[in-house]
Nucleic acid binder design. Structure first.
Lengths: 197, 197
DNA sequence: TTGACATCCAACTAGTTGGTTGGTGTAGCG
DNA sequence: CGCTACACCAACCAACTAGTTGGATGTCAA
């Protein structure tokens, strides 16, 4: 240990607390005091480690997305499995869904966060593996498949309206999403096969 | 007209300004001063008319959703057309998408807004018209179709990552979503036909 | 015109918020 | 052992926020 008590532990505690707080309240709604308290750390440490509330948010979402991409690969040869796995991941990590939404709401039209460019390349490579000739249509399909997995987790209140009590059965929703994807891809990717539009 | 200068006009201006403000910054990020200024009205009027910032938000989103449901019916006999029309509507009204997202983020697990129950009934009726025997599976399909239309508008930054420059072509995305829906429903609704899951 | 009433607003306030600062305690090092 | 460097924190602050108030203004009824 150098001349510090527990730098990395403090940082990690801050990140974990911030993830909860940001997921719950968003950037504007999050309170730095609350984050510090939850982490059992002084507020000033946030600024020492991250600089500002918004930079802390960037760190949080970057970490969360990295956690996801480390565990879920983009659709390779089995797009339906991709939808199923991704749905399950989002169901298991609702905070990530909320973080993604808040990020989408915040960075409108602006550039991506640094480090997302690396993700872009990884995506491109993976999308390529799904089809021999990776077309724009293939990428769009991947995008929609992701939506199939994400959407139920994003809009629970709409699910409630449309499904009523059945909205609670998230596993059924996941299976339905996978079945929907399977049906759509039955005769090949839209835009590629003879059925394409 | 009673002894008022322009009650309805003030109220409408407030609602319009609030819609922009809330769409842009969310409930926590929105500033009541900014709303009042944008409406060309005094801040106090917000409290006179609506009571609080959050109630104003409720009024805004209720109005926005009513605008939508007045123009777009749930899928009747033509689900693909539903996806196409809904996609177009969201593209034309990006503020509504953002409002829906912020609402989803705010009311987590809580009850729906008053007035949404009426919408529930309307939904149930419409869903029924899509299938002779409205099942839970049908409702889930309607939900996913809505997601197909909404998702591209919700996650432009993800589209950017997956599609690159092509993300800008929203009309192509809409067509692709409709084609995807058509492919999925080609042999009947998932959960109903022989292909069901 | 006058009274009654509702709309409207400038100025104010009480409470929070993100961010800072001055100082303490500990670990390495000569 | 004293010195330096860094992690750490209680207390603080300037700026800003949602919400309020007291009075000016305009409209209707008589």
């Amino acid at each position: 240990m150098p001349a510090k008590v527990s730098t990395t532990a403090t940082r990690a505690a801050l990140l974990a607390a911030a993830r909860e707080e940001f997921a719950a309240y968003g950037v504007a709604g999050a309170r730095v005091d609350r984050i510090a308290e939850r982490a059992g750390v002084n507020k000033e440490r946030i600024y020492g480690h991250f600089g500002s509330k918004e930079k802390l948010f960037d760190a949080v979402i970057t970490e969360a997305i990295d956690d996801l991409t480390a565990q879920i690969a983009l659709p390779g040869s089995d797009p339906v499995d991709y939808v199923a796995k991704l749905s399950a991941y989002y169901q298991a990590h609702p905070e990530l869904v909320r973080l993604l939404m808040w990020e989408a709401l915040n960075y409108r039209g602006q550039e991506l966060l640094p480090g997302q460019e690396a993700r872009v390349e990884r995506c491109a490579r993976k999308t390529a593996s799904m089809s021999e000739r990776p077309t724009e249509a293939t990428a769009r399909t991947v995008f929609l498949l992701t939506g199939l997995a994400l959407f139920p987790a994003m809009m629970p209140q709409l699910a409630r309206i449309l499904l009523g009590e059945a909205a609670g059965d998230q596993e059924a929703m996941r299976e339905h999403a996978a079945a929907f994807a399977a049906a759509a891809l039955r005769d090949g990717l839209p835009g590629e096969g003879p059925s394409g539009g």
